[in-house]
Design a protein around this nucleic acid. Structure first.
Lengths: 345, 345
DNA sequence: GCTCAAAATGACAGCGCTGTCATATTGATG
DNA sequence: CATCAATATGACAGCGCTGTCATTTTGAGC
């Protein structure tokens, strides 16, 4: 049977075809229990035949629950955002949710109100929070007060048991692994270019780096640790500073790939050959890290997967009223490419 | 006056406070005429005091028009997508629209149906189309049949008058400008690494390149034109091929920045110094082009602005039932950085 | 086959808004 | 100041669905 392409099929049509009430169709659509298998099949068949798509607006309006999840972000890293977005979206599609994205400036004054308005306006069911929002107490407190569900994607080892659901990235461990790799290559003077103060991950990565040094009895050198902010430019500036030191480092651990690209750039300007004279490693394994010269050794952070997991957690929490406290832990894996090498003797 | 943060404010509350009917508030909210200024002010004041936010779901459900625009894309370039998305979103916010994003694979079999479903399900008012969708006749035909409004962001010079509204990017002119720049630097053997066949822009850029050669009476050399697909890898492959030619080019025009980064990479591997021995230019001016070594000469394509314009056009077209046929033309501007230089003599 | 709690289904109101159409108000005329 | 078209406002139904609660059906146990 053929249908006009833009003919609207409502739940009513399905109900008639299946010979049941509207409410029963609704039950089947929403996967509620208390529907006989036989009935369920009839409804499914009818819905399929009519190619029925529930009207989200009506669902949102009529129901107490909504089917919209929000993604608030403030991150200049396009690769990261796209990955997260795709991960969230794929889970949303799978579960019949809609996504509202909301880029904004975490440092702007009215940010709390802005988020509040956005939640109200879009009738958000739950929020996927990435740093810095996921680590901002004010935001969390507001969300709790508003009784809005959320998942936080945060940096941590899983040791500190938070009360809410979150996906943790073990930046500490991964940073330790990267630093281990460098130490194994014979490096002793390993510098560190930090990430943004606003992100917990910066601190975790620093502590991982320090832990690795300690574990291998490599003397920490404070002047080899410089600040950064996850930007390319901070990599340039940081590396410049480090490479003007009397005791130059033989390796630089950059807090992310972009910073590493900046460091690469700075080294190139100074005619320092990578990795022969200097090893540089990044963090994140963005596509970026394969497009530098040389290709970056880094830690692979499966952003898309992290985002899917987070979203699935969020949706699960939305369904069961009980506040589940499930956490997932991801540890980025070392990816060895061409920017790291045996320390020059 | 203080309000509980999650108290729902409906149009009804505003109506009561303003002492008018619900319908009048609705008129004010939707900027309809036939409301006395005095009344309008009262309503606005009441809405402001209550911090009223119209419920989108209800608007969509009740009204014939909807307030949702869709963005369908299939593009691996994260920078491009983020820029477009931000541009669309900023206009949407300004005009009280919502955005539904829909990444998908333009080459998948059921893509037409997929788009159709998405439109039905989300009750899309209009669509912002980027290449390759904006240049796909099947998609356009389907949209016309479904009576869904859209804006197309396409490559063209504005000469060919299309019947629908679109934003054009004059890739031909920009490519000509870039090539001119190279010729002015004394280059004669200018190679070209193409973009994806699926994108009109590839052809426009090629024709612009050829036009510049012709204008300056530089003999075209067919073996200096190699295929690509806008990817980093195609830049590597293309440059490798070109740099193994007997008559090596002194400059390479890459169809976008990523391809240029790939070319840079290949040259680096072959120990060819950029820009001393070889000039390489890109196209797009993505953040990318500032993070390579050396920084890329390129053509700046104001993606975010293009997206805003397109969205504003779309929304305007949505409001006025008359099929406006306005087009906007953008010509990317040459940005000279460090990857292009006087031809070696 | 009868009873009765449990399971399945349905009737109905109403979510917050807009479209339609009816009614009220306005002010430029004669 | 009465008249009338133009303008402004309001009453009401209903968009497509879900929540609530009433009703029907089921089948286990006697």
């Amino acid at each position: 049977m053929e249908f006009a392409p833009n003919m609207k099929v409502t739940i009513n049509d399905v109900a008639k075809l299946a010979g049941v009430s509207i409410k029963t169709v609704s039950r089947v659509i929403n996967n509620e229990e208390s529907v006989r298998q036989n009935t369920r099949d009839k409804v499914m068949a009818a819905a399929a035949e009519l190619n029925y798509q529930p009207n989200q607006a009506a669902r949102n309006l009529a129901g107490t629950k909504s089917y919209t999840i929000g993604f608030i972000y403030d991150n200049p890293n396009a690769y990261y955002i796209i990955d997260m977005q795709n991960g969230i979206l794929s889970e949303c599609r799978k579960q019949g949710f809609e996504l509202v994205i909301h880029p904004c400036n975490s440092k702007s004054d009215g940010i709390l109100d802005e988020i509040k308005e956005m939640i109200k306006q879009s009738r958000i069911t739950g929020l996927v929070l990435t740093p810095p929002f996921s680590e901002n107490d004010d935001v969390i407190a507001m969300l709790d007060q508003l009784d809005v569900r959320y998942v936080r994607i945060i940096s941590g080892s899983g040791a500190e048991q938070d009360s809410d659901s979150c996906v943790m990235i073990d930046d500490h461990q991964a940073a330790q692994d990267i630093t281990d790799h460098l130490i194994q290559l014979g490096h002793k003077d390993i510098a560190f270019i930090g990430g943004s103060d606003e992100h917990q991950s910066s601190f975790e990565r620093l502590s991982g780096y320090q832990a690795a040094l300690k574990a291998h009895h490599v003397a920490p050198q404070n002047d080899l640790i410089v600040a950064g902010d996850y930007s390319f430019d901070s990599g340039v500036v940081g590396a410049n500073k480090l490479l003007e030191l009397e005791q130059k480092p033989s390796a630089i651990f950059c807090c992310n790939d972009e910073t590493a690209a900046g460091a690469l750039f700075a080294a190139r300007l100074k005619n320092i050959s990578i990795p022969d004279e200097l090893s540089i490693v990044g963090f994140e394994d963005s596509p970026f890290s394969r497009q530098t010269w040389p290709k970056l050794t880094t830690a692979h952070q499966p952003n898309q997967q992290i985002a899917s997991q987070a979203t699935s957690l969020l949706i699960a929490n939305t369904r069961n009223q009980s506040a589940n406290e499930i956490c997932r832990l991801f540890t980025p894996k070392l990816v060895i490419r061409d920017s790291s090498q045996q320390a020059p003797s």
